[in-house]
Amino acid sequence: MPESVRQHYELYPYPDYPLFASVRRSDTYANNLDALWALFNGELPPPESRRILIAGCGSFAPYPFALANPATSIVALDLSRKSLNRARLHCLLHGISGVDFVPGDLCDPDLAPGPFGMIDAYGVLHHLADPGEGLRALAARLGEGGILRIMVYSHYARREEDSIRRALKLLKVREPEQVRRMVAKSGKESRLRGFFESSGEVASRSGLADALLHPQVTSYRIDAFLDLIAASGLTPLRFAHRGALPEPEREIARIRSLEQEKRAPGNFVLYLGRDTKGPCQREGGFRLNPCLAPALAPWRLGTLRIPGRLGHENAALDGAGRRFLRRFRNPVPAASLAPDELAKAGSYADRLFLMRSRG
């Protein structure tokens, strides 16, 4: 990892959320290890797989991951001590303990040794000097049946800000305040002003620095991204950016079609696996994702809005939907469900609201 990247995050810990910003546990449901393991392995994880690594954790991610997995061992790894200190403080202020914070480079095999049942590297690989080395280092830590989530920048989603970032680098602009002064002096129709008016990320100092002043950035077209994955030895399981099709092959074809028009579905979010067993199709039963249990309490009235994950836009849960999901607080055999109930439960399992497992 270049020293310039470490220095960047020492100056601009990212993301810059307020320390007292809280998250509802129901909103962390897609970070739950049991739900993800059941989706891709058709069973709940064995004890030896109940370990999570957040690689490049930044200043916030350990909090929602620990909230989603209170009984799971979590290691938070980041090369910036300032980001780790802020992440640790955020956890402490919200009563979260048990996270192991480790400073250092994810490419160092002696740091945070595996195996892990889940690794999260969201928005990390594209900031490495050698993303392939980083991905291989993470793959080496992943246990059998393990799941790795990555997000990398898409070339066509990032085209405007990459162009601005390169121009600022040529002009030797290094501080957010310099950029803001340039925006203030720019014309109403300028590309720089247009980007600022359309991007929520630049509202904060660290967000602006991450978008436009980062010293190391790689953006990917889909085929270059697939080459990166192929060299890791891991298997694509499912794209999870907004609007993604559930089958990787179909989504890859859709992205290639978009790229022919110089468009993208946004940045690429993808789950990878090592020797995963595949989902449970017919046998077994369903149980509720534990993160959703508090939000489904009978005394909580009205609709429940749950953010979309795995490419889905989730409709608000009305009273009927909440009553249906409450039935699965304890395991319910698939064989006991009527055909329409089975289809409904399967749809909820696909969204991680329910967990379907063979056992």
Results as ranks from 00 to 15, higher is better:
73 S>C: 11
251 E>V: 09
295 A>V: 08
65 F>I: 15
19 L>G: 04
254 R>Q: 11
150 I>S: 06
26 S>L: 09
320 A>Y: 05
336 S>P: 00
39 L>T: 09
198 S>C: 05
160 E>T: 15
44 L>S: 02
247 E>K: 13
208 L>E: 02
108 D>S: 05
72 T>E: 01
176 P>E: 07
73 S>W: 11
185 K>A: 15
299 W>R: 14
33 L>S: 01
245 L>D: 08
349 A>E: 07
261 E>N: 05
346 G>H: 00
206 S>T: 05
71 A>H: 10
165 R>C: 11
56 G>E: 03
307 P>A: 06
170 L>G: 07
7 Q>H: 12
293 A>Q: 13
312 H>C: 13
21 A>H: 13
52 I>G: 12
300 R>N: 15
98 G>Y: 08
338 A>Y: 02
258 L>A: 07
340 D>W: 14
141 R>W: 02
312 H>I: 14
33 L>D: 01
346 G>M: 07
80 S>K: 13
358 R>L: 13
357 S>L: 00
156 Y>W: 15
163 S>M: 11
243 G>E: 06
345 A>Y: 05
39 L>D: 03
54 I>Q: 10
271 Y>S: 04
49 S>W: 01
288 L>M: 08
35 A>Y: 01
69 N>G: 05
358 R>Y: 01
286 F>N: 04
315 A>I: 03
56 G>F: 06
234 L>H: 01
199 S>H: 02
134 G>R: 11
302 G>K: 08
42 G>P: 00
49 S>T: 05
81 R>H: 14
271 Y>D: 02
50 R>M: 09
358 R>D: 13
294 P>E: 14
98 G>A: 04
115 P>H: 09
277 K>A: 15
180 R>D: 10
74 I>M: 11
6 R>D: 02
189 E>N: 14
236 P>D: 08
342 L>C: 10
193 R>P: 06
170 L>K: 15
144 E>H: 08
191 R>N: 11
255 I>T: 03
34 D>V: 01
325 L>E: 11
322 R>I: 06
219 S>G: 01
69 N>T: 03
348 Y>D: 10
343 A>Y: 03
115 P>A: 09
333 P>R: 10
69 N>E: 03
301 L>F: 13
186 S>I: 04
351 R>C: 12
161 E>N: 14
102 V>H: 05
314 N>V: 11
25 R>S: 08
203 A>T: 13
243 G>D: 07
322 R>V: 06
346 G>W: 03
248 P>R: 09
99 V>S: 06
164 I>C: 06
10 E>D: 12
86 R>G: 10
93 L>C: 10
110 D>W: 08
12 Y>F: 15
149 R>H: 15
160 E>H: 13
288 L>Q: 06
286 F>H: 02
15 P>F: 07
179 V>N: 06
123 G>M: 04
149 R>E: 15
95 G>R: 11
